[in-house]
């Protein structure tokens, strides 16, 4: 392109004056980017007009401060609103974080409470299960005992109260075949501290006592029935009160109950 002719046409001067069409303006701006001499010409024409216009300026030009004040006056209504809107956002964020943290702590505590509550419940369940087991065992024992007492081989011996304690009574269930002896001692008073009942097997002619065993843990036996082993050819059974641990020979003065085996 002949930039010199383009410049000489006077289009640059009209461009600076703002008297070109939009299309022409775009064209000049495009050439200005492409050709440095056109750009230079634009700046020189502009500087000429700047110089002329500067010379026509009033005695004093208002300072920018006056403009700034007007701008602030205009935007004074806008800026605080922006500040407000930008200042509540972080607070909302923090508030949300605090609420969230409180929520987490609350839920954590709730969970802890539920866990400990569950532990208590589990312990109770275990305890109840243990009780059921014990009751079942106790029932089984009782059933077993009842079966044993009902056995056709069992001989029942009534033991009557003697002079030391006439109101006392007891029953002996003796399975001669299996050598089992059950003593129902519910009719005996609780033995004093340091003393225990001792069961004796007696043969009558001559009177010979043989120790069968002690009614141990008398107070803690829940059904009052004691299981002993008796392989003697007993003719009678007697129960005496002896020092804890038992004696070699019965103290007949402390004979509580006595009964003979019916033949």
């Amino acid at each position: 392109m002949d930039t010199k002719a383009y410049i000489e046409s006077g289009i640059i001067e009209l461009y600076v004056a703002g008297q070109l069409t939009e299309k022409e303006n775009l064209e000049v701006a495009r050439y200005a980017r492409m050709y440095p001499e056109i750009k230079k010409e634009i700046l020189e024409v502009e500087n000429t007009i700047l110089a002329v216009s500067r010379s026509a300026s009033p005695k004093s030009v208002p300072s920018f401060d006056a403009i700034r004040q007007k701008l602030e006056g205009q935007e004074g209504k806008v800026i605080p609103m922006e500040k407000k809107s930008s200042s509540w956002k972080p607070y909302v964020g923090w508030a949300a974080a605090v609420v969230c943290a409180l929520g987490i702590v609350y839920l954590y505590n709730q969970n802890e409470q539920l866990n400990s509550g569950m532990e208590v419940t589990n312990t109770e369940i275990e305890k109840l299960e243990q009780e059921i087991k014990e009751a079942n065992e106790s029932l089984e024992k009782s059933t077993q005992l009842l079966d044993q007492l009902r056995n056709k081989d069992v001989v029942v011996v009534q033991l009557g109260g003697q002079s030391v304690s006439p109101e006392s009574f007891a029953k002996a269930y003796w399975n001669k075949e299996e050598g089992q002896l059950f003593i129902d001692a519910q009719g005996l008073p609780e033995p004093p501290e340091g003393m225990a009942y001792q069961v004796w097997s007696l043969t009558l002619d001559p009177l010979t006592p043989t120790s069968v065993g002690l009614l141990e843990n008398f107070e803690s036996n829940d059904n009052g029935v004691f299981t002993l082993v008796n392989s003697n050819a007993s003719e009678a059974f007697g129960i005496t009160l002896e020092p804890e641990g038992g004696s070699a020979a019965p103290n007949l003065e402390q004979l509580y109950v006595l009964g003979t085996v019916s033949s």
Binding site: L50, V52, S53, R54, A56, S57, P58, V61, P62, F64
Partner: peptide
């Protein structure tokens, strides 16, 4: 500013 005030003036 000086130029523009000049144009106006």
């Amino acid at each position: 500013a000086t130029n523009i005030c000049g144009v106006i003036n």
